[in-house]
Design a protein around this nucleic acid. Structure first.
Lengths: 132, 132
DNA sequence: GCAGCTTGCTTGAGAAATTTAGCGGACAGC
DNA sequence: GCTGTCCGCTAAATTTCTCAAGCAAGCTGC
């Protein structure tokens, strides 16, 4: 499609539904077209409910899909859906981290690590299976 | 209800629930700890249902959150939840770099990862109890 | 004009997902 | 002993989401 982004939307007091409806009509897409463009992740029926405010908090993956299709920032939708509060333009992208990665690194003791390495070696030595 | 269902130690056939339970216990996290670490995106109650296979298709954002907290590849969870058709081991191995952070030394295949997690859980279960 | 077809949207029922509130058990401190 | 807190779990209530219609409007050819 022609990349015509003349969608002048100020994140003012628009609800999620209003906003979505606005963007869609601006781009002159039908509900069914959006459904298709989203790869079926949102049904046209569901979109309708969304635009009419019958659903308060669609799950983030739906919003993500719509953000893609509409070419609007994901954060905007997330904010309007009430997942992230307010959002001063400052903290849009980098919210809180730290905690998440903590577990990632590991809490293996040395013994455990050795045992696991050994076991892994064992696993690999007998690798002859072809399943899956 | 106390389904002792086949605890086949065949790592390949782990369900989403089994896998999640496995990872969590390996890391010695309680349900409520995970809830907290995920920023409240998954409730402890929900996690419990998840681990017991009472939920078929948790939404991708939940899975993503858990993947972050547990440090396991998102794709693995997505696949186990049935969103993407099972990838061949080869594809999975080379697909991305989020490999098991618990054991980042080696490049583990998905099967190996599962086997090791299971084994680790086994190791720790013998070793004694949690001292909090 | 009006049948038949298509396109855009809406609706309602029902199946899932997700949250809230609460249970009984284990364990520490008093 | 009690008391409080944490654990995993579950039943029930709420909400999201899907699916199968339905309605109105704009065609087309007759």
């Amino acid at each position: 499609m022609t990349g015509k982004e003349s969608v002048t939307n100020k994140p003012t007091g628009q609800t999620l539904g209003e906003y979505l409806a606005n963007v869609r009509t601006s781009k002159q897409l039908s509900l069914r077209e959006v459904e298709e463009a989203a790869g079926g992740i949102v049904s046209n029926a569901y979109l309708s409910q969304l635009e009419h405010g019958r659903i308060n908090k669609p799950s983030p993956n739906i919003l993500h899909s719509l953000a893609q299709v509409y070419g609007v920032p994901y954060e905007t939708l997330m904010e309007k859906a009430g997942y992230i509060a307010a959002a001063t333009p400052d903290q849009t992208a980098s919210r809180r981290h730290g905690r998440v990665a903590t577990f990632a690194k590991d809490n293996l003791t040395k013994e455990e690590e050795e045992a696991l390495l050994e076991y892994l070696a064992f696993l690999r030595s007998k690798k002859g299976k072809r399943s899956l």
